[in-house]
Write a protein that binds this DNA or RNA. Sequence first.
DNA 1: AATCTTTATCGTAATATTGCAATATATAAA
DNA 2: TTTATATATTGCAATATTACGATAAAGATT
Lengths: 110, 110
Amino acid sequence: MGATNTENYSDRQNELATIAKALAHPARVAIIEYLLMVDGCICGDIVDALPLAQPTVSQHLRELKNTGIIKGTISGNAVCYCIDDKNWGKFEKVFLNLFEKFTKKKNNCC
Amino acid sequence: MGATNTENYSDRQNELATIAKALAHPARVAIIEYLLMVDGCICGDIVDALPLAQPTVSQHLRELKNTGIIKGTISGNAVCYCIDDKNWGKFEKVFLNLFEKFTKKKNNCC
DNA sequence: AATCTTTATCGTAATATTGCAATATATAAA
DNA sequence: TTTATATATTGCAATATTACGATAAAGATT
């Protein structure tokens, strides 16, 4: 055990869980917010903006890239990272769709 | 290591990561969606709705409860679970706030 | 009281995550 | 060509997560 069994859940449930997992670490949240703040690519100083060693930041960047939240393009010596606009809106909708399901209802809890 | 160092991040970054972590497993997503579907409390049959053993479901329920996404009230023999309306809206805003930051901008990536 | 039902907790095994030092890779600069 | 700079990968240790069997706890039923 220790491994999540994804087979028994819907694609949507797995997708939501995967995106959430990518956001489930403050360093990755910090990376995303940094990219949002700068509003464009960042070529080079993400490591300096985080309280982590370079290999650890590289690992978090790879996770975000694999999930499709950010993308990186090689530019000479450095790599320029930015939000991946192809997926952002889709990911936004996945969360919006979940949250508004309750907001639209009244709460019948005991 | 293996433990996330939360000290070096803002409260908001840690909060977002914590909520995301609670959503970062398809079983927990399934539990939430089940509660949303039923639209009220569920006293007793969450275990039957999931492809997991009872102790595992109980563990996931506890995580969701600790994060504040759901709440459980004891009702005789059983426990009635439902969405925690006190926090849902707040959690929704946390995600909305993140996602709309990019959607409002144009993408200046290389 | 004895038993059933429901949920929680404990203990444990398998796997994943986090973090970093060391090192590799690749382009830039000298 | 040698050296500097930027990022990725490897290897490893510490910790967390996931899952479940066994068992406990507590009210319900008989």
